[in-house]
Amino acid sequence: MQQVIKKIKKDNLKGRAKRVMKKKEPQIVEVVKSAMFVSGNKTSATIRQTLLDLYMLKKPHAIHLSRKHDIHPFDDEVPLEKYSYTYECSWFVFGSNTKRRPNNLIFGRLFDYHVIEMMEFQVEDYKSISEFEGQKCQNESKPCLIFNGEEFEHKFEYQKFRNMMIDLYRGKVVSSLNLAAIDKIFSFTIINNKIYFKVYVSQLKRTGTKFPRIELVEMGPSMILTLRRTKFATEDTMKLATQVHKSLKQKKKKNVSQSNFGDIVGQIHLDQQNLSSIVTKRPKALRRTKRKTQEKPNDNELEKEKEK
């Protein structure tokens, strides 16, 4: 019944409020997630620059909240969840700088306006975009994300980090892609539990074949991230969050399978054969004839039948 009230209230909305609420409705296919880049109460120049650069990389699906915010995501998530609702962002990157945790950067994602996962890092050796000379990339182009290091495959935290980075920076989920538009390459390399975060601009050069040769120019930012605190979603939450709408699930085709060699194999089911109605060749002898007196078949004919 509460749902009924909700519905009645929602139906009573008019004009702008109605449009805003409609925008907030869940969609069957989600194309892109927006992120907010929030600075904490105390920040250093490095962290401010980090947030700004990360924001530039995520543009236009991003909001930069550069004023001071008295928020401590690991102690209290509520303010961020509120911001998430107002700005319609399901990602936040939070930067702060304290004595205990200098140059602190938190990546966090939300599901249904609730923080489900957070990873906290220390930022070292920061070099901003402006410190690199040369070509810069387009904003909305879909980037390539390249992960180097065995930890990304085997260690749980870094698996999560990989998943989160794909989530944050993969851009729009598209079905078709213009190959000429690939110009941004993110590189995440992990050595001795330190993640090297680098961004390159790519140049495609002709080789005389169908395939181009790719050359990289560093665009920035560049930094080293060291893991601090984490908060990960439970399996149940993750299961809920990775659900697929009924209409998008592929229906299992019955009786069609693939062999080890990639051939499609079909299976056909038949009813039991009715032998009484089966049409077979009958020798002349067994045929019913309309003649009154039946003749015995010749020996020659019998032999012929046998041969057949």
Binding site: P26, F111, T242
Partner: peptide, 11 residues
């Protein structure tokens, strides 16, 4: 192919 959580629950 990477499983990535949704933004909001399935409608």
């Amino acid at each position: 192919t990477t499983k990535i959580p949704r933004e909001k629950p399935v409608p």
